[in-house]
Computed example of a mutant assay.
Amino acid sequence: MALYELAVLGHPTDAQIQELQRLVAEVQTQFGFDAVEIALHICPDSFRPNRRSCAAALFIGGAAGAEVDITAVVDPKIVPVLPVVSSEKQVPVEVPPSLRAFNCIFLDQAPMGRVFSALLECLGLLPRQRRVFLSYRRAESTAVAVQLFAELSARQFDVFLDTHSISAGADFQEQLWHQLSDVDVLLMLDTPEYFKSRWTDAEYGRALAKGIGVLRVQWPDSTPSPVTSTASRAELLAEEFLADGQLSNEAVQRICRQLEAVRSQSHALRTMSLIESVRNAIEQIEGQVNGVGPGRLMQVTLRNGRQLSVQPTLGIPTAVTLQETLLRAGHDNCAVVYNHYGMMKSWQEHLEWLAQRVGGSRWIRQSDAAWDFAGWDAT
């Protein structure tokens, strides 16, 4: 099964298909993927990807695009669909009515490379979205941790390693949990003494609490802890260790391939869980979700008819998150929904300060979504 699934729907030209195939091949090389890790489906009769895969679709408009029943091919309430049209004035002709609520991408203003970048963002494949937390005991596995840090960075991952990623003078504990809250996967170097450190023990437990995927790299002389039974596993052999304490290249490549699979599944499941959480909150207060568009921006209607754009966000939201949400929405009735657990108190205060200065937009904690959406017009 492919880790990432893309579909091109509508009326793509041969030249557009060839360009997209070229861009996919470029990404495969950039990230060190095998050929099967990204599947590109061209005009399928049906696109119903497995929910454990990261998936997104392009709808490229054409002369009869407005007549296409897009819901017969894909469920836009589950899979983000990016409408692409030749120009703004052609939207009524080239785009099905069900997709017109989303901001379209206009080919007379944006090259196909920019369209493809928007597609990669939906898959969580932009380098800034590929975040990994390396959890290890310094006394047992520093050499391997540094080796994996270098290899994963070369594969376009943003890797958190405590000795490289926390500046001097920072509150170490608070920074640690903040960084952990911003990743897709915990890479756990399961050495014999791993769970005897309060830090690594808490890192593993809090990753589970946030729903973050875990890849456990098991040392040859380590007895697996019963608490790690749900984690994915990569076993190391004694002969894979070199004289300097590092791993053989073959072992490193195997770990990186497994990590990509765990990271992809974790990103897909956590994104779907967050979207479903927002959907349940909206339906709980008798509203409805109309669809999921570029950047997984959700278009919703509240019980009183109020139209909102809602951006579910994994990890730590920033001012850039809010800016991109406002630009995608095209109006100021929008909200960013996020999970606040583990975030630094100072960062939460920063978000509140920002909300007071950007009218019409709000930060909403996932746990408070139904309550806050129900009172949208009362505050």
Rank of each mutant, 00 (worst) to 15 (best):
N249V: 09
A238E: 11
A238H: 03
G245V: 06
L259I: 05
R263G: 02
S248P: 01
L236Y: 11
A261H: 05
I282R: 01
V217T: 07
V252R: 07
A251F: 09
G291Q: 12
E283C: 10
V252K: 08
A238F: 01
N290Y: 02
E239F: 07
T271R: 15
R254H: 08
A238D: 12
Q258F: 04
I275H: 09
R263H: 13
S248R: 14
L274W: 01
I285D: 05
I285T: 12
A231L: 08
D244M: 05
E235H: 09
Q253S: 08
V227N: 10
R254Q: 08
S248A: 06
E250K: 07
A243L: 07
S225C: 01
E239V: 06
L236A: 03
V227M: 11
F241C: 01
E276V: 02
V262C: 09
N280I: 02
S277F: 00
A281S: 15
D244C: 06
P294V: 14
R263D: 08
E240M: 04
A251W: 12
S266N: 07
C256V: 10
Q284F: 11
E239P: 00
G293F: 11
S266W: 12
S273E: 12
A261M: 11
N290M: 12
S248Y: 00
M272V: 05
L242I: 02
G287C: 10
Q288Y: 06
Q218R: 15
L259S: 08
R257W: 05
P226M: 00
G245F: 04
R263E: 06
E286Q: 14
S248I: 01
R270A: 08
P226W: 00
E239R: 11
L242E: 13
S222K: 08
L274V: 05
E239L: 06
E239H: 10
V278H: 04
S266M: 05
L274R: 10
G287H: 11
I282K: 01
Q253I: 07
P220I: 05
N280Y: 04
S277C: 11
P294L: 14
S264M: 01
Q218A: 12
S229R: 10
I255T: 07
V227R: 15
M272Q: 13
E250L: 11
T223W: 00
H267D: 05
E276D: 14
I275D: 09
L236Q: 04
R254I: 02
V217G: 05
A243H: 06
R279V: 08
S277T: 13
D244G: 02
D221E: 11
I275P: 00
E250V: 11
A268C: 09
E260V: 05
N290Q: 10
N249T: 08
S277A: 13
Q288S: 14
A243G: 06
Q265N: 12
L237M: 11
S222A: 13
A251C: 12
G245A: 05
Q258M: 13
